[in-house]
């Protein structure tokens, strides 16, 4: 076991980890940040997406040690400073972009990463970008709408009701 140090949601943290400890397990078990979920073990479902130094990363595919010293952001760090929902989170609530909530942390993190890269994505760009995040509940309709809305576009006009 080795002590691994990184910044998570703006706070420096350290916890013991084995060489084989995945970042997702480091977050969930080492730090108690259980908002990041494990849905598949094969880097397909995207429920575990977090940001590492600003990039969307599937935390089930990264060793904790490999991101030592990095700046990691999880779903727990997406709200505004006053505790209110951040822009992407609020758009997901406003447009019913979640049902069971299990894929939601990964969806929010991927969507936020998309908007950082591409502030006004088209519907097609959103669908393509979220191809690595599986949702079984929503049929993706309201997720895509939420991302359009979070980017300041008129989601209602673009998506039929």
């Amino acid at each position: 076991m080795t002590k691994v140090t990184m910044t998570v949601n703006g706070t420096p943290v350290s916890a013991e980890a084995e060489g084989r400890t995945l970042l997702v397990n480091f977050l969930r078990e080492g730090l108690g940040l259980t908002g990041t979920h494990v849905g598949c073990d094969t880097s397909q479902c995207g429920a575990c997406v977090v940001h590492v130094d600003g990039k969307a990363v599937k935390s089930c595919t990264v060793f904790a040690m490999d991101v030592a010293g990095s700046d990691v952001r999880t779903i727990e760090g997406m709200a505004n400073a006053d505790g209110s929902l951040g822009v992407v989170q609020q758009a997901f609530q406003d447009h019913h972009g979640l049902q069971c909530g299990f894929c939601t942390p990964g969806m929010v993190m991927s969507s936020a990463a998309l908007l950082a890269e591409n502030p006004r994505p088209t519907e097609s760009e959103i669908r393509h970008y979220l191809e690595g995040n599986i949702c079984r509940c929503t049929g993706y309709h309201n997720i895509v709408k939420a991302v359009l809305a979070a980017s300041g576009q008129d989601a209602g006009a673009m998506a039929a009701e």
Binding site: Q89, Q93, D94, G101
Partner: peptide
């Protein structure tokens, strides 16, 4: 709007 969304969207589910 769904009240349960708040905890799911903030990782507190």
């Amino acid at each position: 709007k769904r009240r349960e969304d708040i905890r799911f969207l903030t990782g507190k589910g």
